[in-house]
Amino acid sequence: MKHKKKIILFAALTACMVLICSMPVFAAELTEAEVEQAVSSHGKEAVTGNVFIWFLCAIAFLKVSQKIDSFMASLGINVGNTGGNMMAELLIAGRSLSGALHGSRSGGGGYQKNTSPGKAAVEGSFLSGGLAGAVGRQAERSAVDAATGYTESSSIGNSMYQSSLKKGGDFANNVISKIAQGNYSQVGSIKGEGADKAFVSYMGMKPEDNKPLPNFTNMEIGGGRITGTETADGSSRDFAMYHADQYMAPSQGTYDTVQSVDGSTWYKQYAQDAVSKTPYEDGDGKVAYHESIVQKIPPAPARKDRI
C-alpha cells in the first residue's frame, strides 16, 4: 500500500512539475507582436479562447495542488496551503484580460482610437510588458473610468482604487496622477464625492501634532489643474494649483511651490485681495462705481503648450 502511495505521489508531482514549467514558458514566450499577429490571423475571439485555456490550466494546476497538499499531509509531510486568494486573483486577471482583448482591436482593420478616459490616461499597447502588464493596465483604466464618472463604480478596478485610496496607496495615487496630469478633453477630471479624499491622498497629507487636516470642498482634479476650497480654523479660502510641467509659473499674485506624492511640482495660489467694481448711475446720469475688496484667485498662468 505504501509503495502504491509513493507511485501516485511521484506521478502527481511529475504532472505538477510539467504544469509549473509550462506556464512560465508560455508567459515568457508570448510577446505582444505574436498576440497581434495571432489576432490578425485568427480573430480576437480565437486568441481570447487560447489565453483563457492557459488560465484554466493554471486554475486546474491550483486545484490539483490542493489535492496533493491534502495527500501529502496524510503522509505526515507538512505543506503550505495552495490556492485561495491566488485562485481569486487568477479569475480577476482573466476578467481584466478579457476586457483588454475585447478593446484592443476594432471590428475593421486597425486598433481602436481611445474612446474612454482610462484608455487615454493609461498608455501602452496590448500585452506590452506581458500578461501582468496587460492586466495591470486594464485595472488602471477601469479605475480611471470610474474615478472620472465615465463608468459605474462597480468595476474591479474601482474596488482596487477605493481600497488603495483609504490607505493613500500607490495604486490610487498612480490613478489620480494620470487624471491630474491628463488631457482634460480626453481624460476628464475627478470631482464631486471622493475628490477631497483623492486630493489629500495625492498630496500625501497627514495630520500633524494632533491637528486635524483642513476640510476640502468643491474639488476638481484634472488637466494639469487642481481647484477647490480649503477650510481651516473656521475660515475658508479658494485655491488653484497648476502642474509645473504644463504651466508657466504664475505672473500675478503670490504662490507656493508644493510637491505631490508622485514627485511632481505644482504652483499653488490662494484667493487674494482684489478690487471689485459695481457700476451704478449717479444723479447726473453718469456711470460711477461702488468699489469693494473681495477675495479672488489670480488669472491662470499660461500653458506651456500654448506659448
Rank of each mutant, 00 (worst) to 15 (best):
L9F: 09
T14K: 12
V18K: 14
V25S: 04
F26E: 08
A27R: 07
A28H: 03
E29M: 15
E34F: 14
V39E: 04
S40F: 07
A46D: 14
G49M: 07
A58H: 05
F61E: 13
K63V: 13
S65T: 13
D69S: 05
S74Y: 14
G80K: 15
N81V: 13
N81L: 13
T82F: 12
G83H: 04
N85R: 15
M86A: 15
A88Q: 14
L91T: 11
I92R: 04
A93L: 07
S98V: 00
G103V: 10
S106P: 12
G108Y: 01
G110E: 14
G110D: 13
Y111H: 15
P117M: 15
A121H: 03
S125R: 01
S142Q: 03
V144H: 02
Y150R: 08
I156V: 05
S159M: 15
M160G: 07
S164K: 06
S164W: 09
K166R: 11
G169V: 10
F171R: 06
N173I: 06
V187S: 01
S189E: 07
K191P: 11
M203K: 05
G204I: 00
M205N: 02
M205R: 10
K206Q: 14
E208I: 10
L213D: 06
L213P: 06
P214A: 06
I221F: 02
R225M: 11
G228V: 01
T229H: 01
D233A: 06
S236C: 09
S236M: 13
A240L: 00
M241D: 04
H243L: 11
Q246D: 12
Y247L: 00
A249P: 13
T254C: 11
Y255T: 03
Q259L: 14
Y267K: 01
Y267H: 00
K268C: 03
Y270I: 01
Y270H: 09
Q272E: 02
D273F: 02
V275I: 15
T278N: 09
D284K: 12
G285R: 04
Y289R: 07
I297P: 04
P298Q: 05
A302N: 11
K304V: 00
I307S: 07
I307P: 03
